[in-house]
Design a protein around this nucleic acid. Sequence first.
DNA 1: CATCTCACTTAGGTTTCTCATAGCCAGAGA
DNA 2: TCTCTGGCTATGAGAAACCTAAGTGAGATG
Lengths: 197, 197
Amino acid sequence: MVGMSRPDGDQRVALPQPDPGVAQHITLTGPLADRDSWRADACPIVAALDVLGTRSAFVILREAFYGASRFEQFVKRTQLSEPVMATRLKELTEVGVLAKEPYREPGERTRNAYRLTEKGAELLPALTALFSWGSRWQLSGPQQVELAHADCGGLVTSVLQCEHGHPVDAGAVELRSMHRRRELVVQGRAGERPTRA
Amino acid sequence: MVGMSRPDGDQRVALPQPDPGVAQHITLTGPLADRDSWRADACPIVAALDVLGTRSAFVILREAFYGASRFEQFVKRTQLSEPVMATRLKELTEVGVLAKEPYREPGERTRNAYRLTEKGAELLPALTALFSWGSRWQLSGPQQVELAHADCGGLVTSVLQCEHGHPVDAGAVELRSMHRRRELVVQGRAGERPTRA
DNA sequence: CATCTCACTTAGGTTTCTCATAGCCAGAGA
DNA sequence: TCTCTGGCTATGAGAAACCTAAGTGAGATG
């Protein structure tokens, strides 16, 4: 997808000179410490990409967050073809990221709207993270958009935080195997679906 | 990529019954309010996907964050083929997400290590967000992994925050066009690369 | 010099994503 | 009943992402 064709105005620019790599990484703990002793068979990132692994899925999600709900809107606003749109909407509905909701305009027949479910809505941090990164490192020039906090006007980004509300530095992230922690459930808002533990 | 073939143990499971879509979306402001009046030509998400739009790129990044740096490690740990690895590493290096760094083991010839640059390291929130989402909504069963805060042991996720440190609710996000805000630069740590404005 | 290994490259083929074009069908309006 | 429209579906083709298998080439080791 690197040379991914984009139909419209391309304004990609090489922005910064990258530093010779000096970056912290995640610490592997316990039985995971020896990376060559295990395989990432159940990788959550890959599992997520099984659902959103296409450009079209991301773009459709973007428009869903921008407020689109009807087939026609999705097609027009994403510039994707109708066949792709139909396929993707069906898939995203099947996996529960979108939900069909019949609606009827006066003098029209019943049609389906596609709305984000809670599962879909929870993709916002992922989309936002890509948005911020792309904005900072890949785009330049005018005509840019940004995400702002309605309350204070500040730029919105996606940051690492632990369930106790601490800001988490990249160097302070550990990967560990999850052995049925039943006690650490905190901060789960009521009505949440599959709260682990 | 939805039916994306995965070489190893697949343990995808249908977890929750999605609700009939009722989710807040982002508010479009100013000239962007009428979504049909503009095209998302310079979409930062698409720009990001131009770089990481493949499964292999994500998986390579994952392993980079897990500590891999050598060609052989990347191949073994990602289960990707050598041709794909060579191509992807070159591309990721070219766009500045990874940087080559020559190293030499005693009794070996000089080889290249690939390390995350700052640009690459800043993808952690995006990877983490996908990680959390995939873990919560797509995976189940044992053998799962999770990200924890080294300091307190709490689960790490990616959350929305504005530049003033406020937690941002999904309903409080606005999309606006960015007209050269030179004043609002806050919180920029020294040494940061392309701080806007 | 011959051999080995690691880091790639080349060649060939399959699957998936995408597009454009052309239907199809349900229901409203004439 | 005929037509129009919006929401899909079907078909066929090109590009891209992957794979396996088989090189290549630089620098150690024997």
